[in-house]
């Protein structure tokens, strides 16, 4: 029964990882950009929620109403002012610029909030749980998982059923021809980053409620998100959710064997899948 519990907890944890990954997947899909600062932006969201909590006395879940648009704005500005200048054939500039951004963010947070671990207090909901037969399931993890499913379904719908999604796909296919259709690439990229960081805001707040975080916590989150994307298969959003779940289950089972193996087990499962299925478990079938 312990093992079943571990698998269940891991599955729910996978929802959080899918939220880490969805934003990463989105901007890669639209503009082939890999944002090394993605994890630090997740942590930044948690700190913004913390500040809203302190200054306005908001529950972090309510603060989301402010954190999501704030992060979206930051994303749009970041893309238009800095990242758009690096977009092109050469992979090095965006990589190194987002890497520099990552270091800057970590140290700005260090200056503003010190290295002490922080926590977001969401109240009674944090400890609430329901019993399913022999298993106890936390309300919060279930909420996170459901949010992840809803976010991915919404992104999927946006991508394939809306004008914005059409514009994203067209720009991803052929940037210059999309420009001929009257789509301003710089603006489209800005919107993609805004959307990515809006999802990041959800991920950051849920992370902050679940565990303590500090300014250096971003790197691991980037890695978890990245592993979920690769396990699931590049460009497949539902695959990303599956990838998050596989990673989460690997970690909780690893932790069950020995607490020291939690993270390591996740990495090892990732490397095994990379060795056996380099395109991920559910690669997108390209036309």
């Amino acid at each position: 029964m312990d093992w079943l519990n571990a698998i269940l907890q891991g599955t729910l944890l996978g929802g959080l990882y899918a939220l880490f990954a969805a934003g990463l997947s989105l901007i890669f899909g639209v503009m082939r950009l890999v944002n090394i600062a993605h994890g630090d932006l997740i942590v930044l969201s948690a700190y913004i929620a913390l500040s809203f909590g302190v200054s306005l006395g908001l529950n972090p879940l309510v603060a989301l109403l402010l954190v999501v648009p704030t992060m979206a704005l930051i994303g749009y500005a970041l893309q238009r002012l800095i990242l758009n200048r690096t977009m092109g054939e050469d992979l090095l500039p965006p990589l190194l610029v987002t890497f520099g951004l990552s270091v800057i963010l970590q140290n700005v947070l260090l200056m503003g909030y010190s290295a002490d671990p922080q926590n977001l207090q969401a109240g009674a909901i944090e400890t609430a749980s329901v019993t399913l037969g022999p298993l106890a399931v936390g309300v919060m993890p279930v909420m996170v998982f459901v949010t992840a499913v809803v976010v991915i379904a919404a992104l999927q719908w946006m991508f394939y059923r809306t004008a914005l999604g059409r514009a994203f796909r067209a720009t991803s296919d052929r940037q210059d021809v999309a420009q001929l259709m009257g789509l301003n690439r710089a603006h489209i990229f800005g919107l993609a980053m805004a959307l990515s960081l809006a999802v990041t805001a959800l991920a950051g707040v849920f992370l902050g409620i679940r565990t303590a975080f500090d300014p250096a916590a971003g790197g691991a989150r980037l890695i978890f998100g990245f592993e979920a994307v690769i396990i699931g298969g590049l460009g497949n959003l539902w695959g990303t959710l599956a990838g998050g779940v596989i990673l989460g289950v690997a970690q909780t089972i690893g932790a069950k064997i020995d607490p020291g193996y939690q993270i390591l087990a996740g990495h090892i499962v990732f490397l095994i899948i990379l060795a056996l299925r380099p395109r991920g478990l559910f690669p997108r079938i390209d036309g």
Partner: peptide, 12 residues
Amino acid sequence: AYFAIGTWVVAE
């Protein structure tokens, strides 16, 4: 760029 993050996983 995914190679870059892959190297980080290896370091971890």
